[in-house]
Amino acid sequence: MASFFALLRKELFVLAVSPFVYVLLAVWFSLNALLFNISIDTQYIQADLSLLPPYLFGSGMLVWLLLPIFPPLLCLRMFAEEHRVSTLEPLLTAPITDSAVVLAKYLAACLFFLVFWGGLLFFFLLLDMHGATLDWARIIGGFVGSCLLSFLFIATSLFASSWGGNLVLAAGGGAAINYCMLFLPALFQYDDTVLGEVSRNSHLPNLISNGFAAALIDSYAVMYLVLLSALFLFLTYLRLVSRRWIP
C-alpha cells in the first residue's frame, strides 16, 4: 500500500510539474470559457439559467468534441512515454504490483482531471457572485456525471497508452475509442432491434444531459460508467502483464 501511495504521489508530482499539462488546462479553460460566454449571452439561457448545466455538462457540442481528446493527451506520457524513454521496465520490475501501477496512474489522472472540471464550477460560482440564482442540484449532478465520464475516458486512454511507445498512436487510439463510445450508439439508437435498445442504453450524451445534469442520478448510468472504467483498467492491467511474453 505504501508503494502504491508513493507511486500515486510521484504521478501527481509529475503531472503538476509538466508544462504541457498546464498548456492543456489553459486550452481547456479557454474553449470552455468561450462556450460558457456564448451561452450566457443568448436569450435562451438568460430566460432560464437551468438550461445551462445540461448544455455545458451534457449536450454542448464543444464539450463533446473536446472531452474525448483531452484525457488521451493527459494520459499520453503515463505508459507510452515511459515505454518510449524505457522507464517502464524498471517500474514494472520494482517491488510494486502491476495492478498498483495501473491504479496509481489512473487515480493520479482522475484527481488531476477534477481540476479540469473544477474550472467549470468556478464559472458557475462567478455567475452566483454576480447575482444569478442557480440550480445547484443540476450543476452538482452535471459535475458528477462529467467527472465519471472523464474517468471512463481516462481508463480508455490508459488502455490505449499501454500498447507501445508511439505517442501519436496512444493519443489517437484513446481518442478513437472515446469517439466510438460517444457516437456509435447515436447511429443505431433509432433501430427497433436489440441493437437499438442497447444503443439507447449506452448513449453517453443522453445519460449525462437527461440524467446527471437534470439532477436525476440513475444507478444504471453510474454502473455503466464505473463498470466500463473497471473493464478498461483490467484490460490495461492484462496488457501490462502480457508485455512480459508478448512485447
Binding site: 488546462l25 486550452v27 460566454n37 450566457i40 444569478a132 442557480l134 440550480d135
Partner: peptide, 24 residues
Amino acid sequence: NEIPFHPSREILGRIKSLTLYLLP
C-alpha cells in the same frame, strides 16, 4: 420554474474577462 438572469453589458463583460483570461 424559470431562473431568469439578465445581466447588464458591464457584468457580462466582467464575467467574460474573468472566465476567458483569468484561468487560462
